[in-house]
Design a protein around this nucleic acid. Structure first.
Length: 587
RNA sequence: GGUCCGGUAGUUCAGUUUGGUUAGAAUGCCGGCCUGUCACGCCGGAGGUCGCGAGUUCGAGUCUCGUCCGGACCGCCA
């Protein structure tokens, strides 16, 4: 027998028991006459003590041991004479009278400790060693818990888990597809799904009125720190529902997960913010609501006073940074540099210090008198001691820059507490987005999204102002999920394709199966898909989804551990009837 | 497709601005001492293709060009 207990199990109540443990050697501490070894497994760490009670056969083995050796020990559980309150097993230790080296280990290339010395690349190459660290293990456990709780909750709410195919068909809309050649159908290719979108709609038409799936999705686009070429979605769809039904159902799920996974009690209804309000008040469609600092539109109040920058701007807005009136020249310069970075894109920054004595000091004192500043302060909700930060320019870019400045100030002021969760629904998204490159409208969410009933009439004359029955779920400024109530009539879907500039024949070729299905009594339906990796990361208080994926890829889409992608053999290429453009036959 | 940052001991990094004696630190590793450690402590030691290739120079970790690898971002990602 390898073990009677795990390395996280033993407590005071086990004192006196004879136990057997097997685990990895975490650390060896020799003190001359005695030796301590900490033994680790998935469940925890237990201290072993080797002193004068240990048989010679056991102590003789000690010099051979090293980090990450697997050893099996048997012995008495003892109460420690000096306890370690920082360890769950810190009250006890095991005094082995038998020991066996189960497997030796080479010295690992980095320290397998909570504070590792390993760099990103090395840890990716030896991911199986990194996974031994408690940090990663906790993340994997959180992910596991999330998945289990999702299944439990949705099962209780009559959802059916159905798997959909991975080898499907490439579609022109959306992201670039990963493609798989078909040996049996030379010259033809499958595509891997970007999401099970059409299949879940077909399941609704198939009568499975509540579906979910925790499913891998694939997008062949350039990556970022928080983007992977394959990622996991919690994909859901419901029939005979309207938007409110969907939101309420998944608000319930989110609350359940907050409670059970993060032990975070969120009683209130999640705020629902329209897309227009989100943009106008936070400068983004995924606002971080852990703090206020709303953007105030002060365009009307500041124009016509002879300050050219303001007078020529389409939009002027500001935020109030509480208690920052004492910012130094240097700090203000830093903020100016921040907003001028290309990603933020503002021309400059106007500041107004509302000093604690009630006076004002600003970068535009020449143009405005204190009464004006008083008025601005009212609009921005500024009190004495606060700092008003103002940007001017084209409305959309300026709001976006203000949104980024708001996040920056939130971070500086410590208002973005990773222990806190601020969820929100963003609703009433526009139906279309104008694509200046292609000179046509594209679907903001996707082409199966239904318009608001009252906006349907606009489809021919003013598509830009049509709103969709589409919604996003946001936590702490991170987009966690999004969905919509779908179109369920063939007529509306055809109109939609027409508005998107997709011809009848193209539509028939790409989505004929869905259009055909709409002929046979398609129920009204809607759904939502969550970025599961991201949701796990947010629940764990982290920005990095890589830390919540057991075997992630790097920013070039490579797996540094197995070194993929890799060339395939001549033989494989021949079977697939594929010739490489560069003429080489690889291998 | 583009921009930026990095590559020096097993590992994490300093040294590159201003080219010049034997390339340093911490940690890990090895040896010695140590009976209550838990990031144990103390003493000693080993450990380097300065990513790779070319060039400039009397002389290159340091300057130039190329290249490979890693990271961040823009475009892209409904």
């Amino acid at each position: 027998m390898y073990r009677t207990h795990t390395c996280g199990a033993l407590r005071m109540e086990h004192v006196g028991n004879r136990v057997t443990l097997t685990g990895w050697v975490q650390r060896i501490r020799e003190l001359g006459g005695m030796t301590f070894i900490t033994l680790r497994d998935r469940y925890g760490i237990t201290q072993l003590v080797f002193d004068e009670h240990a048989p010679k056969a056991v102590t003789d083995l000690l010099p051979e041991l090293g980090r990450e050796f697997i050893i099996r020990v048997s012995g008495q559980v003892r109460e420690r004479s000096s306890k370690n309150p920082a360890m769950p097993t810190g009250d006890i230790e095991v005094s082995p009278d038998e020991m066996e080296v189960v497997n030796r280990s080479e010295l690992p290339p980095f320290l397998i400790e909570n504070e590792t010395d390993g760099g990103e690349e090395l840890r990716m190459r030896y991911r199986y060693l990194d996974l031994r660290r408690q940090v990663l293990r906790d993340n994997m456990m959180l992910r596991h818990r999330m998945a289990q709780e999702i299944r439990t909750y949705l099962d209780q709410h009559a959802f059916v888990e159905v798997e959909t195919p991975f080898l499907i068909k490439s579609t022109p809309e959306g992201a670039r597809d990963f493609v798989v050649p078909s040996r049996m159908n030379p010259g033809e290719f499958y595509a891997l799904p970007q999401s099970p979108q059409t299949f879940k709609q077909l399941l609704m038409i198939g009568g499975y009125d509540r579906y979910f799936q925790i499913v891998r999705c694939f997008r062949d686009e350039d990556l970022r720190a928080d983007r992977q070429p394959e990622f996991t979605q919690l994909d859901c769809e419901m029939a005979f529902v309207d938007q409110e039904d969907v939101l309420n159902t998944f608000e319930g799920l989110a609350k359940h997960l907050f409670q059970v996974v993060a032990h975070y009690d969120y009683q209130d209804r999640f705020p629902r913010i329209t897309y227009d309000d989100a943009i106008g008040l936070y400068g983004t469609d995924k606002p971080d609501l852990r703090f206020g600092m709303k953007i105030a539109d002060i365009t009307r109040e500041v124009q016509g006073q002879g300050f050219k920058v303001f007078d020529q701007a389409e939009y002027i807005g500001g935020i109030c940074a509480q208690g920052c009136a004492d910012y130094s020249r240097k700090q203000l310069d830093q903020l100016t540099e921040f907003v001028q970075r290309p990603q933020v894109g503002a021309k400059g920054l106007v500041y107004v210090k509302y000093n604690s004595d009630g006076s004002f000091k600003s970068s535009v004192d020449k143009f405005f008198d204190p009464d004006r500043f008083q008025q601005w302060a009212r609009l921005m909700n500024a009190q004495p001691g606060d700092l008003m930060l103002i940007l001017a320019g084209a409305r959309e870019q300026t709001l976006s820059a203000l949104g980024m400045l708001r996040l920056e100030m939130g971070s500086r002021l410590g208002l973005r507490d990773p222990e806190k969760f601020a969820p929100a629904w963003i609703v009433d998204f526009p139906l279309f987005e104008w694509d200046p490159d292609q000179q046509r409208y594209t679907a903001m969410h996707h082409p199966f999204t239904s318009p608001k009933d009252e906006d349907v009439g606009l489809i021919d004359k003013d598509p830009a102002n049509m709103r969709a029955n589409a919604y996003d779920f946001v936590i702490n400024g991170v987009e966690i999920g999004g969905g919509s109530v779908r179109i369920h009539t063939r007529e509306m879907q055809e109109k939609m394709f027409e508005a998107l500039g997709i011809s009848k024949s193209e539509a028939q070729e790409q989505f004929g199966f869905l259009l055909n299905a709409f002929r046979y009594g398609a129920p009204p339906h809607g759904g939502i898909a969550f970025g599961f990796d991201r949701w796990c990361a947010v629940m764990g208080g982290s920005d990095s989804i890589r830390d919540y994926i057991a075997f992630p890829k790097n920013n070039a889409g490579r797996d540094l551990m197995i070194n993929s992608p890799a060339p395939i053999s001549k033989e494989q290429l021949r079977e697939l009837q594929i010739k490489l453009a560069n003429g080489s036959d690889t291998g």
